[in-house]
Design a protein around this nucleic acid. Structure first.
Lengths: 229, 229
DNA sequence: CAACGGCCCCTAACACCGTTAGGGGCTATC
DNA sequence: GATAGCCCCTAACGGTGTTAGGGGCCGTTG
């Protein structure tokens, strides 16, 4: 009957046939396997057992598929527990956001510069704003703080998730690549780059956890200064 | 014949043969004209008056060309004056970094996630570290602060430089797109998204200058807390 | 002088890519 | 039974990055 049509209004009805959800899931699988550069419409089609042209019945563009993908990437986000100080909750938000992006291959590249707020993204944003306002931030500050956090996390993970050097893509571990990069800095001409030489180890420290945490703490400190006592 | 060829607008450096520099300059021109998506090896080749396959004599990959490009993008960076507090210099660094990226079309997308330190990038980093250490930051903190700033700026500009919506790409100005986005937020179901509805204007404020400045000040505040009095 | 070897560009081709046009079979409704 | 809409198909267009192999030019060398 007519009421079974999975049409526009309830776009996320779980269909058993070929739905936008199924396409998104297939794209997610290919992203994990081949990376963003290896994600093509033809492969997505093959993954769902269909020819490439058929995808355009369900999706306007590859861009639209990527929009769906970017929302799906945050689909299984778990919100931090609503306890403790606003600061702890803020920090935890940043950590989980980073963890979410790191969990999927090339996730940062997919999300980067894609302002396509799907339902999952909206839900997270809504919750985040709610906590910031409850903490005492003004409306404008809450909005900006949320934007600030996501800009930092995306910028950070984007660099973190990209190969440190051409050598890394070819088998070398992160630690080895970092050591190689450190060597590069250390052997620079010391008269023109004294600081790079001196800080070679600090600059190429492969411990991304503490590096991320450093920035996160600075952000939280900076925001805390906006609140009254 | 070959060296004085009236070859249209092809060669820009009179007398010089085809160098990596010339390739980079040509790529930069095409980037400005057609954006990153429209930057192809064939177009770069045509721009310098050559066929595509010839580029591979000078450059290993398109990736390597993009590495060169990302360094060239910061080639004309002017360092902030060495006066005033470390804080002012830090802020000015952030502003100029952003301005530099904004000045060239798709610059943020080119640089994003590309850790290819060319000579220009190294020079800026060297200077930045020097000032941070002079301000009293420890070696490790200086290195992390520098990383933090660039992660924020890149993340911010990446979002700023990408079209706010599909509508914006088609002619609409930033302000109009922002108004449309605000309308989208404002008409969301208020019972599930009360904060998004309430903060619709704050979330879609098109004034990127103050939004960027907000984050920058928070960063500076957070870093200031690391220093002794 | 002639031969060599490097530099630098060429043509041709491969294996892809996103996207569109147009066609056809299936199914549910009138 | 006819009709309309959904959903997939084949075929093709105009691109993409990249490689193989060939061939002039030119300075050096025997």
């Amino acid at each position: 009957m007519a009421e079974t049509t999975p049409d526009a209004a309830a776009s996320d009805t779980p269909g058993q046939a070929l739905t936008r959800q199924a396409l998104t899931a297939a794209a997610l699988r290919i992203l994990e396997r081949d990376g963003l550069a290896g994600l093509s419409m033809r492969k997505v089609a093959a993954e769902v057992g269909v020819k490439a042209a058929s995808l355009y019945w369900h999706v306007r563009n590859k861009e639209e598929l990527l929009d769906l993908l970017s929302d799906a990437l945050v689909a299984d986000a778990e919100l931090p527990p609503r306890e403790g100080s606003w600061r702890d909750q803020f920090l935890e938000y940043g950590r989980r956001h980073r963890a979410l992006l790191l969990a999927r291959r090339d996730a940062a590249k997919v999300v980067a510069g894609r302002l396509a707020p799907g339902p999952h993204i909206l839900a997270v944003l809504e919750d985040q704003l709610d906590r910031l306002r409850a903490a005492g931030f003004s409306d404008a500050d809450a909005a900006m703080a949320s934007y600030l956090l996501s800009a930092y996390v995306q910028g950070f993970v984007l660099q973190e998730q990209s190969p440190l050097s051409a050598a890394e893509a070819a088998g070398a571990t992160r630690g080895e690549a970092a050591r190689a990069a450190g060597e590069t800095f250390r052997t620079l001409p010391a008269e023109t780059y004294p600081n790079l030489v001196a800080l070679a180890d600090d600059l190429t420290d492969p411990d991304m956890e503490t590096r991320f945490e450093f920035g996160l703490q600075r952000l939280a400190d900076g925001l805390a200064a906006l609140l009254p006592a």
